[in-house]
Each structure stands twice: as C-alpha cells, then as structure tokens.
C-alpha cells in the first residue's frame, strides 16, 4: 500500500512546493512510492483529512495557523517540514524584530484590528516534527533522502557539520578570503553548499549548528576583522523565530 501524502502551506512563498513540482524525472520515481492526496500547487483535489504523511511548508504566524497545524498533526502519522519557514521560521521571523502591535499597524494600518497575528514560529515550536528538510528553498536531494527514510521508518537528521565542510569539498574559494562575510561556519550542512557553488554567500537558511563552537566563531571574526553585529544581523534574516519562547503564543 502506498503512503497517502498531503502537502499543506502556511506563511510562505510556496517556493518549496514548486521545487518538488520541478524535481523532473525523479518525481516519477517518487510518485511511484506515494499517493499525493492534496497538493494545492499542482492539483485541485482535497484529502478530506485522509492522509498518512503531512508535508508542511511555511511558518506559523497566526492563532488560526496554530489550530490548523495542531489538527494536521493529530491526523498525520508522520509530519515533515520543508524549507526554512517551516523548519526554522525563515524570513518571516524578521517580523519578530519588532513589537507585534507596532508591526501590525505598519503592515495593516487602520485595519490592523481585523487581523490575527502572533510572533513567527517554526512548526516544531507548536507541534512535534518527525523530519526536517532545510533550506530556502528546500534542498531537493535532501527531500528525496528524507522521503526514503520516512518510507522505511528510519530516523533522519541533517549532518551536524557546518556548510564549510561541504563547501571545501566542492573546492570553492573561501569567501572570507575574498573579504566577504559568510554564514557557512555556523550553519548546518546538508545543502552541498548550494549557494556558494553558485557564486553567492551562505545566508544561514538551514539554521544554526547545535554546537557552533562560540569561541572559535569569535576567532573567525577576529581573523577577518568583522564586527559581530554584521553576522548577527545577517543570521537573523532566517533565524529570528528561535527567540520565541515555548507557549508564548498560546
């Protein structure tokens, strides 16, 4: 029996679901293994609440979203988050740089009172997540790996190594040596240093390492004469949601 898989989106750009739609040929192999019962971006059918695996894109930003994700969790046997918004809060977390009433007023103006809004959270700040696919957008090979692990009932965790590890293996010239500030040293690997391979810096979209070695990180900034705020500002672009305390939005 094929697993019934439903895709749901919360606050996001739906770019990760687009990544799945764009997988290409490998998608046929994927579809051979699962039954997609809900996927707004590519089909109009709804699951009617009958699914085994829920794939979640987007962060939790409203009280309504909190209720909705709780309901999905109560149905799904397995819950997978895809992309930075769902997995770590992502760019939506930038909202948390401001006081909530202030930012609501700025965005909605006079109509502010009609809109339900809470500080941005990653999905695992509300419900238990079984598998994470990180990245902005999510890294497709990691999605396929996670899917295989989920189908086999095996645990999967992104490697506890920094992006630098993979970047060096790809023989990229270190961006610090070019005078740039890169989030590689603190960011969890698993993307095969996708951005740097394509001429960009790492923005930290996969979230911070469990143990980033604080004293060593300060040493890196010292060596390259980089102020700490530069790094924290850049890192907060994707990682601000982690500051929200447990139950703060309940």
């Amino acid at each position: 029996m094929k697993a019934k898989v439903a895709f749901f989106d919360f606050a996001c750009c739906e770019g990760c679901q687009l990544q799945i739609a764009n997988i290409g040929e490998a998608l046929l192999d994927v579809l051979d293994k699962i039954d997609v019962v809900e996927f707004r971006e590519v089909m109009s059918e709804k699951s009617g609440g009958d699914y085994d695996v829920a794939v979640i894109e987007g962060s939790i930003t409203t009280k309504h979203a909190i209720e909705r994700i709780k309901e999905i969790r109560s149905i799904a046997k397995v819950l997978i988050t895809i992309g930075a918004c769902a997995s770590i809060g992502g760019v939506n977390g930038m909202k948390n740089n401001f006081e909530l009433p202030e930012i609501k007023k700025y965005v909605y103006g006079e109509d502010e009172k009609y809109f339900d809004s809470v500080p941005t959270m990653a999905v695992d700040q509300v419900v238990k997540v079984d598998y994470y696919v990180h990245g902005c957008p999510m890294y497709v090979p990691e999605f396929v790996t996670v899917l295989k692990h989920a189908l086999m009932g095996l645990p999967y965790k992104a490697p506890e190594k920094s992006v630098c590890t993979e970047c060096k293996l790809n023989e990229n010239e270190c961006l610090f040596d070019r005078g740039l500030t890169c989030m590689g040293p603190v960011t969890r690997a698993g993307c095969n240093s996708w951005c740097v391979n394509n001429g960009n810096i790492c923005y930290g979209c996969r979230g911070m390492l469990d143990d980033p070695a604080k004293t060593g990180q300060i040493e890196i900034l010292k060596k390259h004469d980089i102020p700490l705020e530069w790094v924290t500002n850049k890192f907060n672009m994707y990682n601000k949601a982690k500051d929200v305390k447990e139950n703060e939005n309940e």
């Binding site: 590890t165 070695a213 004293t215 060593g216």
Partner: peptide, 27 residues
C-alpha cells in the same frame, strides 16, 4: 578554543584518509 570543527584541515590534507561507510538506497 579556536577550532570550529569544520573539518577543513582534514579534508584538504593529502594524507588524511579517514572515512565513513554509508548505505544509500534507491527510490
């Protein structure tokens, strides 16, 4: 205190050969 454990020093070393053994499965 300085090290961030990125493993760059070993990956670029001509005589480092430590490895892991990992199973990959097809779809």
């Amino acid at each position: 205190e300085k090290c961030v454990s990125c493993g760059n020093c070993t990956n670029v070393c001509p005589t480092c050969y430590c490895f892991d053994i990992i199973d990959d499965i097809n779809l």
